[in-house]
């Protein structure tokens, strides 16, 4: 009801949207950088790839065999939305920002 609470309300909604998204991945442990274990695993693999075109989705799948494809895709989508990674030569190749 207070009119001056408007700016803080909009700030809060930005922060919450990120938190809700991480919650969707069903991983309750959140490390210091705000990513889930799954998201960190995917990000670290992409970071570790020395090729100029980046890591492709097939490589991610073969290196994360214990992980369902949908889970890997979710992590990739999240990291892409947050700006941690970006696609290069096509939509299946990713580099870390």
């Amino acid at each position: 009801s207070k009119s001056h609470s408007q700016p803080s309300a909009s700030r809060a909604s930005i922060g919450n949207s990120g938190m809700n998204e991480t919650g969707n991945f069903g991983n309750n442990f959140i490390p210091a950088n705000g990513l889930t274990v799954t998201q960190n695993q995917v990000l670290n693999l992409i970071k570790a790839c020395p090729r100029p075109e980046g890591l492709n989705f097939q490589d991610l799948r073969s290196q994360l065999q214990h992980m369902p494809i949908a889970t890997i895709k979710q992590a990739v989508d999240f990291l892409s939305n947050e700006g941690h990674i970006y696609s290069t030569v096509d939509d299946d190749h990713f580099k870390s920002t």
Partner: peptide, 20 residues
């Protein structure tokens, strides 16, 4: 190359926006 640079720039902007 242009596509890659554009994607990278967009990703950096998103990352920056999250860290404001």
């Amino acid at each position: 190359l242009v596509r890659i640079q554009k994607n990278k720039a967009a990703a950096l902007l998103r990352l920056a926006a999250r860290n404001v």
